[in-house]
């Protein structure tokens, strides 16, 4: 569970908004003996679970600096450690790793900027205007989102293929088409998320601006926009990460090596020649994983609490 799980965390916040945040002091009336045993258990669990969670990571780091293909019983730091795999990775004309990385960054960046822009205007309208059909429109957007986007992958494939015959920029095997598809899959949940945050900005601001004769656009641009920048940044980053990590739709919609995103490229790279490419793949996997891991680590508090708290204050 990677990209699709991101929105779910926001759903979580809806459930929890009413409950109080109180840490439970569990160390009430236990004896020192009990406490010591519990501490021992905690340490044991920690060792085991850290091993389970991190062993694959350690192993891939080790494999990436191991120039030989004997990886079954390698030491963590191979005796002949080198950056040979990284060199091979960057100089393989058949597998243009840099190009894939660039494609991924490009697609993810454009998607996230467009998503933030389009969603921001929509969320503002839903939050600030009262008009007929507003409620049903909002609920419709939520309902459409129930249909998992992966289910339409065959339709999207056929749709883009037809479009491509007239308009190759948005057809199959094009980044334009892929970006539009990604925009569609994230739109609904992002609108809800941002609208929730917009709702927390006091309306007094709009009203005093209106008294001063500001148009809606002026109000939005010079007063609201600076206030909602944090949520825009978070939505943008999340859109970037989930797009960067996405695999299946890119696999279905992209066909040629030069168009691949990093995930598709890495997958096909290792799928074709499992044993031989392993060290090189390890190097690529590391480089590919580092950005999103860093972003998640930095944003984990936002993701878990900060953002969702903003989204639910009614």
């Amino acid at each position: 569970m990677s990209e699709q799980a991101v929105p779910k965390r926001n759903g979580f916040a809806w459930r929890l908004r009413a409950t109080s945040v109180r840490a439970r002091a569990s160390e009430g009336r236990s004896t020192p003996e009990q406490r010591r045993r519990r501490r021992l258990g905690q340490i044991l669990v920690t060792i085991l679970v850290l091993f389970f969670a991190l062993f694959p990571i350690v192993w891939i780091i080790s494999a990436s600096i191991n120039p030989t293909s004997n990886m079954a019983n390698q030491a963590f730091i191979p005796p002949n450690a080198s950056v040979a795999n990284f060199n091979d990775l960057l100089n393989d004309p058949l597998h243009p790793f840099f190009l894939w990385m660039w494609n991924s960054v490009k697609v993810a960046a454009i998607t996230s900027v467009l998503a933030v822009f389009v969603t921001m205007l929509t969320a503002y309208a839903f939050s600030r205007f009262r008009f007929r059909g507003r409620r049903s429109l909002l609920l419709t957007i939520l309902l459409i989102q129930v249909f998992p986007n992966l289910l339409t992958m065959v339709a999207l494939f056929l749709f883009l293929r037809q479009i491509g015959e007239y308009f190759p920029t948005f057809g199959l095997d094009s980044h334009g088409g892929l970006i539009m598809v990604y925009l569609g899959t994230q739109m609904g949940i992002n609108i809800w998320l941002m609208k929730g945050y917009f709702d927390t900005i006091p309306r007094d601001i709009d009203e005093s601006a209106a008294v001063d004769g500001a148009s809606h656009w002026q109000t939005f641009w010079s007063l609201i926009f600076p206030l909602v920048r944090p949520v825009l940044a978070v939505v943008g980053v999340l859109a970037f990460v989930s797009t960067f990590n996405e695999f299946i739709l890119a696999r279905v919609l992209l066909r040629s090596t030069e168009q691949f995103t990093l995930m598709v490229g890495l997958y096909l790279f290792i799928d074709q020649n499992f044993g031989q490419n392993w060290g090189v793949f390890a190097a690529g996997a590391l480089i590919g994983a580092v950005p999103t891991v860093i972003i998640y680590t930095i944003l984990q508090d936002y993701i878990v609490s900060g953002l969702t708290a903003g989204a639910v204050k009614g």
Partner: peptide
């Protein structure tokens, strides 16, 4: 959190290895 933060495909491919 690292296993969850990693791109899923990369995690799966590491396990495959």
């Amino acid at each position: 959190i690292i296993p969850y933060a990693m791109p899923g495909v990369i995690g799966i491919l590491i396990w495959r290895g």
